Each structure stands twice: as C-alpha cells, then as structure tokens.
Amino acid sequence: MKIVIAPDSFKGSLTAKQVAEAIRTGVARIFPQVDYELVPMADGGEGTVQSLVDATQGRLITKTVHNPLDHGVKKIILGIGGSATNDGGAGMAQALGARLLDAAGNELPLGGGALDRLDHIDISGLDPRIQATQVLIASDVTNPLTGKDGASAVFGPQKGATPAMVEVLDQNLHHYAEIIKRDLHQDLEQVPGAGAAGGLGTGLMAFTNSQMARGIDLVVEFTKLKERAVGADLVLTGEGGIDFQTKFGKTPYGVALATKTVAPQAPVVVLAGNVGQGIDSLYGKDAMDAIFATPTGAKPLAQAIADGPHDIALAAENVARLIKAVKN
C-alpha cells in the first residue's frame, strides 16, 4: 500500500512538513508497514520557500541584499504571498534601480500613497543582469491590480486601510499602471495575478524578466508530486482553512487535480483546521473525495494551535481506520 501525504501549512501554527509528519503519525497507527511519500506543499503564499526546500532537499541562504542577483543565480522562483505593502511593486522597482519621478524630476518617496504624483519612469539605472535572470512568479491569487477585485480593495483592508484609503490607493495604482503602459509599453492592470501581494505581481512583470504562474502548479512541478504519486492508494492533503475559494489555486485542490491524473483510483482526503462554506463545489471525480475538520471540539485559538499536531494525527488515524474497515 502506498500513501501520499501532501499538505500545505496550517497558517500561524504548523509548517507543511510538520503537518505531513503529524498526518503520518496518525495513519501509521493503523498502517505501520505501508510506503509513505511525504511531500510538503504550498501554493505561492506563506510557506512556499520552506516547502520547496523541504521537498527538494535544498538549503536556505540568508543574506542582506538590495536586489535578487545574489550567488549568480539565473532562475528564481518568487512566492509573492503575505506582503505588507500596497504599492504595485514600486518599492521593489526602486530598490532594483528604477527611478519613479514626479513632474519636477524628483524621486517619489516609498509607498503607494505617492503614486498619484508619478510623472515618468526611468529604467536606465536597472542592472542589465536583471533581464538575464528568469523570475517565475508563484502566486496563490489571480486578482487584477485595480477594481473591486484588485489589490487595494481586497488586500488593503487586511493591512489596515480604511475605505477612504482603499479608494485613494486604487486610484493611485490605476495611475501607476497607466504610466507603466505609456513608458514601458506593458498593459498590466487587468492581468490575472497583477494584484498579488499588494500589486507586486505588476511590478515584477513590468520591471523584471518574469512569468506569472499559479503557485500550486510550480510547487507541483518542482516537488515532482505527480511522479511521487504514481501507484498511490490514498492521498492525504490539507491546510489551515478550506472553503469555496480553495478551488481557485489553493494547495488541496491543486494536489487533488495533480494526483488524480496519475492515480485516479486513489481517494483524496483533505484535513483542515477550519471548514468553511461552499465546500460542495470542491468534490468531483477528478478532485476531492472527502473533507474533515481536525479540531477536537470548540476551544480558544491558542489552545487549538497548541493541540494542532495531536488533533491532526487523530483525524488522520480516524481516516485510516475507515479506509481499513472498507478494505476489510
């Protein structure tokens, strides 16, 4: 018997690797002698770097830098989830050598609040090596830069922006996109993913040699999930919360779609810390087969986090008990 365990992290609680190990702990109480494939996953948001490092036996290198041209790398996978900005990647562009200038030729201050004064963009100072470096943008959302689904409207309030601030930021990002279109000849405002990470998707596409991709697709590729799932009899995945939005690029749905292509007979079971609305849309012949909440009863958040490994293992054990009963 072969069991693939490929969860995302439980945000603020456990890394994807820790979740995978907790699931294995529970399942192994019932199936101690089976072949386990642990594949820590992510979708371009929080935990993507750690998941890729864990899955590929890589290593983390920490340095203080002002651009991405460290160690001579020519290909970068850049996860752009969980930013604290709403400036369309303008600050990143300035850090890389681009000049964002007002009508008097003065450099704009950092932040999205000043973008309404942007008059023209000067990229003559960009290091030429930037264009020789391929950037794969791993995004877990498909939001455009502006509008009701844009960076300001969707992510601004998460970062403390009031409705009035959201309106100003959205107008500023629209102006920013218009200047990019005029000076850099790129129309990015409504491109899916342009609004990711407060609009960093836009900045990356405008100022670097980059390609937008769904984060989950990149992680599936680089972790070799499909190859490792060949011959699987059961797939277990999960993340901290699951609802109808999971279908739009989140890890559990991506894991289900990927593994079903190579192991269509293997049930895909999802474990989640919170099960929200609309999960009926996640089920299907080529998608998920069952979804279970992991918490053992109502409890304060701090206690739920502390109980995470135990509760995940217990839920996984109960899934394994059901699978064994059906097989017998």
Rank of each mutant, 00 (worst) to 15 (best):
H120K: 14
G88F: 00
K75S: 14
H71R: 13
F155W: 06
K75R: 15
P109A: 08
V135Q: 04
D127G: 01
R117Q: 15
S83I: 02
T133L: 03
G88H: 00
L136I: 14
A93D: 06
V65E: 09
L136Q: 08
A114H: 14
R117M: 12
A114D: 00
V135G: 01
G125W: 08
Q94D: 00
A93S: 09
V141I: 14
A132M: 12
L145P: 01
K63Y: 12
G112M: 02
T162Y: 07
P128A: 11
G160I: 02
D102N: 15
Q57G: 14
A98K: 07
L126M: 10
I61Q: 01
D119A: 15
A93R: 00
A151I: 02
R59V: 08
T133P: 03
G125H: 08
G82M: 07
G79M: 01
G89R: 02
A103N: 08
P68A: 12
I77H: 01
I123F: 05
V73P: 04
L101T: 04
S124A: 15
N106M: 09
S83D: 02
R129F: 03
A55F: 08
D116K: 13
D70P: 00
T85E: 03
G147M: 04
A161V: 05
D127M: 07
I76C: 05
G113N: 13
G58V: 02
K159H: 05
V154I: 15
A95S: 14
N106P: 00
G112L: 04
P157Q: 09
T142S: 15
G81H: 00
S139M: 06
A103V: 11
G156R: 02
A104N: 13
H120V: 06
P109F: 06
A98G: 06
A153L: 03
P157Y: 03
I121D: 10
H66R: 14
S83Q: 04
N67E: 10
T85G: 03
K148T: 14
G111Y: 00
A153Q: 05
G72R: 11
R59T: 10
G72C: 04
L69C: 05
I76H: 08
S83M: 01
G72P: 04
G105F: 06
D87L: 02
N106D: 12
A93T: 09
S139I: 00
V154T: 08
Q57A: 11
P109C: 08
L100D: 00
